[in-house]
Amino acid sequence: MYISITKQHLDNNFSQSASDFVDYLEKENEGVLPEMQEHFFDQNNDRIPPEQVVKEIDGNTAKLKKEEPKFYSLTINPSQQELKAINNDPEQLRKYVREVMKDYAASFHRDPQVTVEDIKYFAKIEHERTFKGFDREVRENQPYRAQIVRLENEIRKIERGELSGNISSKTKKIKSLKAEIPHKIYGKPIEQGMKKPGFQTHVHIIVSRKDVSNRYSLSPGSKYMESESKLNGKMVKRGFNRNLFYKRAENTFDTLFNYKRNFVESYEARKTYIKDPHEYFARLLGLPTNERSAAFKLLGKVGVRVPQVNIPTNKVQMALKTIKQFKKAMDLARSSSSIGI
């Protein structure tokens, strides 16, 4: 499970209206029969019109300055394994989102405690993702595509008499490159903009910066984490604990759907990798045999090849070269957004 929290802004300025973002989230409904469309929902309602979303978010910004975010975007990205566990069922995902928003509210350090009833949010499920230029498959296909484009240009120049050369040999080379290109879907080379296969369901959530009363600011981007300060002579609590939220959100999924999470899927593992790749690798290799095998398979699905090393029974020993190989593979997976670390 990978969850992101971002401020919504255009260039260097924060969006003054949620209309552009709502329009963007409506893109999957274009050309789709009404009964097949996904609708915005909140804690209590399943079918909320996009116009209402814009009106309520834009109307809930009292005393916020232009340079302050008016709303935040949460994106919930279940893995294909997690989606498989719930049969890619939108109803189950809506159920999970409503529980996660309780976790979100409880992660604010305020007095009185914030509840989900204090949060103004609207969520929308999307079922598709497309390959981006930074995806591993696109990047690894690019050298082949570049050669093919170059050869095709040369053939056109030969046909126009601008260049001398053998069209037949260049045509054979193009055919060979198309056969060798490493990543394909149904025989077609993967390129930017192509739809990704398999379960790609994810959730976008628009969360107002202000609470439902439009009186208090609830910022998940606060630099303060569970701190207290004096305001007008009174000690007040403030801050948002992201670590707590991510842990709760993960635990909520596991509890709700009886999901058996592998180490490499966990938020704890992601934090460990970022802080200390050596420790991450040591813990990975130290897993029980069945769990370690499952972990290697999960990493393999996102393009991470785990180097083969001998593991002494008393202590995990790792060569620097092995760690570097593993870290390089993990970083490639992270940069292509194929693994939530």
Rank of each mutant, 00 (worst) to 15 (best):
226 E>F: 04
226 E>H: 07
226 E>G: 08
227 S>E: 14
228 E>L: 04
230 K>F: 14
230 K>L: 15
230 K>D: 11
231 L>A: 12
231 L>W: 10
232 N>Q: 09
234 K>E: 13
235 M>L: 15
235 M>G: 01
235 M>T: 15
237 K>M: 13
237 K>I: 12
238 R>A: 06
239 G>N: 04
239 G>Q: 03
239 G>F: 00
239 G>D: 02
239 G>L: 03
240 F>K: 05
240 F>R: 08
241 N>L: 07
241 N>K: 11
241 N>G: 04
242 R>W: 02
242 R>M: 11
243 N>E: 08
243 N>V: 04
244 L>I: 08
244 L>D: 08
244 L>S: 10
245 F>D: 13
245 F>P: 00
245 F>V: 14
248 R>A: 10
251 N>S: 07
251 N>Q: 14
252 T>G: 11
252 T>P: 11
252 T>C: 12
254 D>S: 12
254 D>W: 11
254 D>H: 13
255 T>S: 13
255 T>G: 04
255 T>N: 11
256 L>N: 07
257 F>C: 05
257 F>W: 00
257 F>T: 09
259 Y>E: 01
260 K>Q: 12
260 K>S: 15
262 N>P: 03
263 F>R: 01
264 V>H: 01
264 V>R: 00
265 E>P: 07
266 S>W: 07
266 S>H: 11
267 Y>P: 01
268 E>M: 03
268 E>C: 00
269 A>I: 03
270 R>V: 11
272 T>C: 09
273 Y>N: 01
273 Y>M: 10
273 Y>Q: 07
274 I>A: 14
275 K>Q: 11
276 D>H: 09
276 D>I: 09
277 P>W: 12
277 P>E: 05
278 H>K: 15
279 E>I: 14
279 E>W: 11
279 E>A: 15
280 Y>R: 01
280 Y>L: 01
282 A>I: 14
283 R>H: 11
283 R>S: 05
284 L>Y: 03
285 L>A: 00
287 L>W: 00
287 L>D: 02
288 P>T: 04
289 T>W: 07
289 T>P: 03
290 N>Q: 15
291 E>R: 09
291 E>S: 15
292 R>M: 01
292 R>T: 00
293 S>E: 09
294 A>N: 09
294 A>T: 14
294 A>E: 14
295 A>V: 00
296 F>Y: 14
296 F>Q: 08
297 K>A: 14
298 L>E: 03
299 L>W: 00
300 G>C: 07
300 G>H: 02
301 K>V: 12
